[in-house]
Simulated scan of single mutants.
Amino acid sequence: MQTLLFATNNQHKVEEIQNVLPAHYHVITLRNAGIDIEIEEPYDTLEENAHKKAHTIFEMTRKNCFSEDTGLEVDSLEGAPGVKSARYAGIERDYKKNNEKLLQELANKNDRTARFRTVFCLIMDNHVHYFEGICEGTIALAPKGIQGFGYDPIFIPKGSNHSFAEMNIAEKNKFSHRKKAIDKMVAFLESLQHGKS
């Protein structure tokens, strides 16, 4: 069993990741590790914010760890909300308000294409590695579904007629940006185990 310290206290993300990791990986959150801090995300790129979180925890614990940062990029809004996705409608990170603001911004837009982009930062034996996952899709006209979190009720992945919030985790993982990044990270970790890198 290999333990990975995940620099987050977002239980939704933990559940998604634990659901797709092979059984011999065990994810520990900051709370599980007895770490109660809020790590700022001050940068303009997902990569920098992910590194900030992982590096902060690595410096505290000296344990191999990983973090992620995810943004919803809407083409007609020039990539917004992007790196500001979690706090789009205010610092309180209110999912419902974020969705409402985005739908208002798109009220008079014909182009509703968008993508979720996630970047994982893994610090392993003092080396930094990045893994990216992208899911293309469109923004719905109104929220649909009660599953998931964040922008899931208004994001419809390419290849489906349902929003992420209308899917269970297994269905979502057929499209998920987060799963794509995790798969890349797992492939890297497995290659280390087998001496291929």
Rank of each mutant, 00 (worst) to 15 (best):
N49I: 07
E100W: 00
I156C: 03
L102E: 03
N64C: 11
T61M: 11
E73L: 13
M167H: 01
Y88W: 04
R117C: 12
H162M: 13
P81V: 05
V128N: 05
E47H: 13
T138W: 09
Y88L: 00
L103Q: 04
R87N: 04
I91P: 03
K53T: 07
D125Q: 15
K63M: 12
I154V: 04
E40Y: 04
K96I: 14
N49C: 06
F131K: 04
C65W: 08
E59S: 14
N98C: 05
G79R: 03
F131C: 04
L141E: 15
A86P: 02
F175L: 02
N110F: 13
G133E: 08
V74F: 05
A86N: 03
S176A: 08
N98R: 06
V74H: 05
E171K: 07
V74G: 02
E73F: 15
K96C: 09
D75Q: 10
L102K: 03
G137A: 10
A140G: 03
R115M: 12
E105D: 15
T56N: 06
N99G: 13
K84R: 12
R112C: 08
I37F: 04
Y151S: 01
E166S: 01
N173D: 14
E136A: 11
K109N: 09
I37S: 06
E136S: 12
I169F: 14
T56R: 10
A140D: 09
N110G: 15
L122K: 02
L141V: 11
S67C: 03
I123W: 08
D36L: 12
S76L: 10
S160I: 09
I39R: 07
P143W: 00
N110V: 13
P157L: 05
K174F: 11
P42I: 09
I123G: 01
T118G: 07
F155L: 01
K97G: 03
F175V: 00
K158N: 12
I35M: 02
I123A: 02
R62A: 15
G145P: 02
R115D: 07
R93D: 08
D75K: 12
G159P: 06
M60D: 04
H162Y: 14
N173K: 07
H162W: 13
K63G: 07
N110L: 15
N108H: 14
K172G: 04
D69G: 01
T56Q: 04
